[in-house]
Structures are given as C-alpha cells and as structure tokens.
Design a binder for these strands. Sequence first.
DNA 1: ATTACCTTTGACAAAAATAGTCAACACATA
DNA 2: TATGTGTTGACTATTTTTGTCAAAGGTAAT
Lengths: 98, 98
Amino acid sequence: MSTLGLKLRELREQAGLSLRKAAMQTDIDVAILSKMERGERKFSKELVLKLAELYKANSDKLVIDFLSEKVLYELEDEDFGLEALKVAEKQLKYKKNK
Amino acid sequence: MSTLGLKLRELREQAGLSLRKAAMQTDIDVAILSKMERGERKFSKELVLKLAELYKANSDKLVIDFLSEKVLYELEDEDFGLEALKVAEKQLKYKKNK
DNA sequence: ATTACCTTTGACAAAAATAGTCAACACATA
DNA sequence: TATGTGTTGACTATTTTTGTCAAAGGTAAT
C-alpha cells in the first residue's frame, strides 16, 4: 500500500505520459519506475523531485509523503513505533530551536 | 549527541561493567561498543535488548529511544521532517485500527 | 497475424552501506 | 613493569540497495 507510488502514478497518467516516457525524461530505467510506482522499490528523493517537476505537481507534499514512507518503513512491525515517533517529534522540535 | 549511547554508557557504569566485559557478555567487539556508545556507529535493536538485560534496565524505553534515533537519522537536514513525522503518525494510528 | 505500443517480471551484476575483525595507541593505577 | 581502562584506524566481509537487461504478456489498430 504505497500511497506515494499511487499518487505518482496518477499524476503521471494525468500528465498523459507513459511509463517509458516518464522514465526516459528522468533518466531512470522503466523497470525501476514501474516497481517504484507499485511500491516494490523505494523512491529516491531526487527522483520524486524530478517527477514532480515533470508532472508539474507540488513537490512539497510529495517529499513529505516520501519521507513519511521512509520513516514508516523503519518502524514496520515495531510495537513501539508510535511512541518512537512521538519522541522523535519532540526532539526534532527541540532541535529546531537551537 | 546520541542520547541512546549516553544512556547505555551510564547504565553500564552503574552496573559496574567495563566496556570490555559488557562487550564480551553480549558477543560484540569492544571497538564497536565503544563507537556505539559515542554515537559513531548505530546500535542494532538486538544489541540494545541484550544490553538492557545485562544492565537490568527497562528495555522498552531504550528501544523507543533506539527507534526514535533511527527515524531522526533519516530526517536529518530535511526541511519537512516535522511534517513527515506528523503524516507518519497519522498513518500509523490508522493502521493500528485495521 | 504482425506491428506498435504499453507495463510487468525476474535474473543478474554493480555499487554502496553496514557490520565485524584486529592490532595498536594513550592513559591511568597498582 | 604489568594490568586494566577506553579509543582509533585500517582493513575485510557481508548485507542491502541500486541499476541493467532481456523477455514476457497485454491491448489495440492496421
């Protein structure tokens, strides 16, 4: 259930681009993009940015989704995932005021 | 500023164990433990659990710290780290009710 | 039924990140 | 000196991630 992949696939289709073309324009192998859109491989941040530009979409939200997915991946099957996120949030907020 | 490393070092000292002994009892190289305590290398969850047991400390909190650190590591220098954490939290909560 | 697209799949190799090993160092104290 | 402490860096091994490629299967039009 990769929400980022789904979103990027929708955006691509809305942009009227085939997988091949989108892959070519972003210098990536078609196979990889296919797998990424279906959540079989992880996106890289660089690719997300390239795709956002190609699809003329807002990149901020996509990057946030990208990061969120990365984080959730680290926490999958962890009993204390939620608690860990809370602690991380607290520390991040603190850090911002440094 | 590895809070997990600092905590585990304190716990070790409170347990009256030298780095060498703690390393031996957990089947790990001294050098690695030294580096982990000082944040130069990342802990593994397995080691955190072993150390918690060895030091007779509550492992839940330590695991939470461990996970939090792992998450923060992924988000370092990211502009939207906080937003990503919020999204991740929301998704994790949702997932729990599945 | 062949041409021209499309997406998906899997096998494989290359590259990068992580983890482990080891010997030596510097410091203190007995 | 001898023993115990923690630290460092160079090196290897292993695991994970990433990239490449060829082929398969689908659809639609000619």
